[in-house]
Simulated assay, not measured.
Amino acid sequence: MNIKPHFKDLSMVRVALFGMAAIVSFTLLSSKESLAEEGVLLSQSTSGTTGAAKKIVVARVVGEPIYQQDIISAFRALPPRVRRAGLNRHYSSLLESVIVAKMLTLYGRRLKLENDPRVKRQLKRAEDALVRDVYLGDLVRKQITDKILRDEYKILAKRNEGIEEVRARHVLLQTESKAKEIINFINTGQNFAELAKKYSIGRTASRGGDLNYFKRDEMVKPFSDAAFALKVGQVTQKPVKSDFGWHVIKLEDRRKRKMPTFEKMRPMLRQKVGQKFSNQVVSDLLAQTKVQRFSFDGKTARAAPQESVSPPAAPKPSR
């Protein structure tokens, strides 16, 4: 049977295919805290229970149902920053992504591709990854206690409570001359946020250049120095140069940082403490496991590394 799917809206298909990567990468959420954290965003769009979500049909592909729960699972697979906008904001693209995934799966199964050796190899890799993650996760969770989380919270509170932070907007531009032009516009009374939406090349352009609150060390030094030197309501009268381009900055507010409550911080604390325990668990297991290491060509024996190598620090975002 020759199957030739037809689509009238190719642009929507591109969006759907792009979103499939998030669906394929979805993994089970293992902690109640993570589920509770996402519950606020999900509750903006769904009022039913998980059981109800498994019964509500949101689409059909060749008669095969797609359930509300499938959309929720796809939403949870999105990066945290994307999820902040809520499920309603992403529903259309998520729905199309799940529809495309279901369609391709159905057509593939018609060709009995589930029996293809390539599929079976991928399934074995996926199974190995899940076994690995569940095993390590179980070992780590056994060690995390409420006392450990509270102790970690006290350390973070001592380090962060009362630190000065500012809220600023910026317009990011490619040239100094364009930045000077924007400063002239502002000085003649034009709205900063509207100018940011129109001219900024930064990721915050759509929200008027708003960077929310940040500490001095959370931005690159030239930007932070300029922002923290301003008084509330002031705008930099000279363009500020950074590795990202030329900035025009407006200070919106200044305050002392207040720590969120322990309960609000609990998911992040579990992640932070869990990472520490994960490293320790892996080190302990390696110490008691017979492992032979060889060179890339397999001919020469290699000794175990003396120290674990930490990943390089991520660059500070320009936002």
Rank of each mutant, 00 (worst) to 15 (best):
312 P>V: 04
318 S>H: 09
235 V>F: 10
178 K>R: 07
233 G>F: 01
215 K>T: 12
288 Q>E: 13
258 K>Y: 06
25 S>L: 11
301 A>H: 07
240 V>L: 03
265 M>S: 15
59 A>V: 01
34 S>R: 14
257 R>D: 05
267 P>W: 06
36 A>M: 08
9 D>W: 08
139 L>Y: 00
17 L>K: 10
218 E>Q: 14
167 R>V: 04
43 S>P: 03
149 L>Q: 07
294 F>T: 05
225 D>K: 06
277 F>L: 15
274 G>V: 10
213 Y>A: 09
4 K>F: 12
265 M>A: 12
56 I>F: 13
39 G>L: 01
19 G>I: 02
99 I>E: 06
279 N>V: 11
37 E>M: 08
242 S>I: 01
69 Q>A: 13
241 K>I: 07
6 H>T: 15
268 M>S: 14
247 H>M: 05
152 E>R: 14
291 V>H: 03
174 Q>Y: 09
32 K>Y: 04
176 E>L: 02
228 F>V: 06
231 K>D: 15
271 Q>F: 09
74 A>P: 08
101 A>W: 11
316 K>R: 12
176 E>I: 06
143 Q>T: 01
58 V>C: 07
266 R>N: 07
230 L>I: 01
243 D>W: 10
284 D>R: 10
260 P>F: 05
27 T>H: 14
82 V>A: 11
7 F>S: 08
80 P>I: 00
150 R>S: 09
43 S>N: 11
124 K>Q: 14
57 V>F: 02
239 P>W: 04
131 V>R: 13
32 K>Q: 15
286 L>A: 09
103 M>L: 13
291 V>G: 02
168 A>C: 15
274 G>F: 01
307 E>A: 08
221 K>S: 14
170 H>L: 05
49 T>Q: 05
32 K>F: 09
1 M>P: 04
209 G>T: 02
282 V>I: 13
172 L>N: 05
191 N>R: 12
134 V>E: 07
212 N>C: 09
274 G>Y: 06
62 V>F: 10
281 V>K: 06
22 A>S: 15
214 F>K: 05
53 A>L: 15
66 I>C: 02
104 L>W: 03
11 S>Y: 03
27 T>I: 12
142 K>P: 08
228 F>W: 04
2 N>Q: 08
245 G>M: 02
294 F>C: 01
167 R>T: 05
107 Y>C: 05
94 L>N: 11
39 G>S: 01
270 R>T: 08
274 G>C: 00
112 K>L: 13
50 T>H: 11
87 L>A: 09
94 L>I: 14
18 F>P: 00
75 F>W: 00
50 T>I: 15
44 Q>T: 11
